Simulated scan of single mutants.
Amino acid sequence: MTGSTGTLGYMAPEVLENKPYNRKCDAYSFGICLWEIYCCDMPYPNLKFSDLTSSVVYLSMRPDIPSSCPSSLAEIITRCWHSNPNKRPEMKEVVTMLKAIDTSKGKGMTPLYESHGCLFFCCQ
């Protein structure tokens, strides 16, 4: 695999540093995507490449999670973008955690359907 491949704001620290990486870098990117979907915003819109790289890699900077974010979703996001790839969940575990979100009070995500191993959600 080659380092520095992907979209900057979504790249795991180990990819940004051109270090060896595995599929846990996808969990990192997915965590950033979950944050982006919930917040309807782009991560790090005003940072240059050098600032972004050093902040994400050396300062463990991540986007701020709003207090309105359900704690179950915030936990998934923060576990996905953990600095240590070994502490990130496998994507199969992420799917399990997403399915377990309590949507009975109308706050959260409801699974719509599953197709080819992918879950599709809608926010309520």
Rank of each mutant, 00 (worst) to 15 (best):
R62Y: 05
S54I: 11
K92I: 14
I77L: 01
T5N: 07
Y28Q: 07
S60M: 09
M61S: 02
T5S: 11
L52P: 02
K87Q: 15
L52T: 04
L112C: 14
I76T: 02
F120G: 04
E114A: 10
K105Q: 14
Q124M: 10
G108R: 09
K48L: 05
K92W: 07
K92R: 10
Y113S: 10
T103Q: 06
S29D: 08
R79S: 14
S104R: 14
W81R: 03
I101Q: 07
R23P: 03
I77T: 04
L8Y: 13
T96G: 02
W81E: 00
A12K: 09
I65N: 00
D26P: 01
I32N: 03
K87H: 13
P45Y: 11
Q124F: 11
Y44I: 05
M61K: 14
V94D: 05
N22M: 07
E36A: 07
P111A: 07
L34V: 03
P63T: 06
V95H: 06
G31L: 00
M61V: 11
G31R: 01
P70V: 03
Y38F: 15
M11P: 08
D41V: 00
F121M: 10
F120W: 13
K24S: 12
W81Y: 08
T7F: 00
A74D: 04
K19F: 04
D26G: 11
W81S: 02
T7M: 02
G3D: 03
C69G: 11
K99F: 07
C118E: 10
A100R: 14
A100F: 04
S104F: 10
G9F: 05
L47C: 06
S67G: 12
T110N: 05
M1G: 09
C40E: 10
G117K: 14
I65A: 00
G3A: 11
C123N: 13
D64N: 12
S71F: 05
V57N: 00
K107L: 13
S68E: 14
N22D: 15
N84G: 05
H82L: 12
L16F: 07
W35P: 10
S72C: 02
K24W: 08
S60L: 07
G31A: 07
C122P: 02
M11W: 02
P13M: 01
L119F: 11
